[in-house]
């Protein structure tokens, strides 16, 4: 589904991704963990081509995204991205936020898109909010709307960039449970997260990154209970000590 080969990314002279190689299969849920500044977010932003890799290639379903040109829009339609700060469109209602992309890209008619949006809002338990503007929503509600907005495009891959980091603690759960539900439906997911319990419970595979490198990757249980690399051990001992 996703193949990353020898990916390098520099910001100025800062080497933020160092020769990343990674393959993610259809239906797999991968959690990316690691200290801040380790390159996790940059890595998933590269997958959606929001950052341009300095060198190396990324293939989405066999297609090299750097060589897609205008075709990047079509590739992005099959990839949903959920951001830390939600990035809902403040001048559009919840319904318009969700229906905008499917209608503009010609994927659905307005009527179909609205039906689809209602279906998604039902899953998110937010049908009553369909006509309000994002401003009046709580953080947890905003993030669930943002997830619904991505899902309206029927993506095959969902990327979560610290989707719960900007939320008040009591709202983290409602977003995580939506993500868990998605994982159970067989969605291919890459989740950058600081929620270790969630990673352990939901991810098929956990990747530990530090200083722009993949230090260790393994099944969730193995990585959390039996980390091999000293840096992984050190990181886990710090985040799991409470």
């Amino acid at each position: 589904m996703i193949r990353i080969e020898n990916l390098n990314k520099y910001f100025g002279d800062k080497h933020v991704l160092k020769n990343i190689n990674l393959e993610i299969k259809k239906g797999e849920v991968v959690a990316l963990i690691g200290p801040s500044g380790s390159g996790k977010s940059t890595l998933i932003r590269c997958i959606d081509y929001l950052e341009e890799p300095t060198s190396g290639s990324i293939f989405i379903k066999g297609e090299n995204i750097a060589k897609a040109g205008k075709g990047i829009d079509r590739i992005r339609q099959s990839i949903g991205m959920v951001f830390q700060h939600f990035n809902l469109f403040p001048h559009k209602t919840v319904m318009e936020n969700i229906t905008l992309a499917p209608v503009l890209t010609g994927k659905l008619t307005k009527k179909e898109a609205e039906n689809k949006a209602l279906e998604l809002l039902k899953i998110m338990d937010l049908v009553d909010k369909k006509d309000v503007y994002p401003n009046s929503l709580s953080g947890g509600q905003k993030q669930r709307i943002a997830i619904a907005r991505s899902l309206a495009m029927d993506p095959e891959i969902m990327l979560f960039d610290e989707a719960t980091s900007a939320l008040d603690p009591e709202m983290v759960g409602e977003v995580l449970s939506v993500m868990k539900y998605l994982a159970e439906t067989g969605m291919t997911m890459i989740v950058v997260t600081h929620e270790m319990a969630f990673a352990k419970q939901v991810a098929d595979r956990v990747i530990f990154m530090a200083d722009g490198e993949i230090i260790e990757e393994n099944s969730a249980v193995e990585l959390f209970e039996n980390p091999q690399n000293p840096r992984t051990k050190d990181f886990l001992s710090k985040v799991l000590q409470y």
Binding site: R76, Q77, M81, F83, F89, L100
Partner: peptide, 26 residues
Amino acid sequence: DKGQWEASRSLGLSNKQTMRHIILPQ
């Protein structure tokens, strides 16, 4: 906010569509 561009582009909207429907109205 740059996030508005990113959200719109990540949904698969083109540069022009993003400008017209997301950025300019704001």
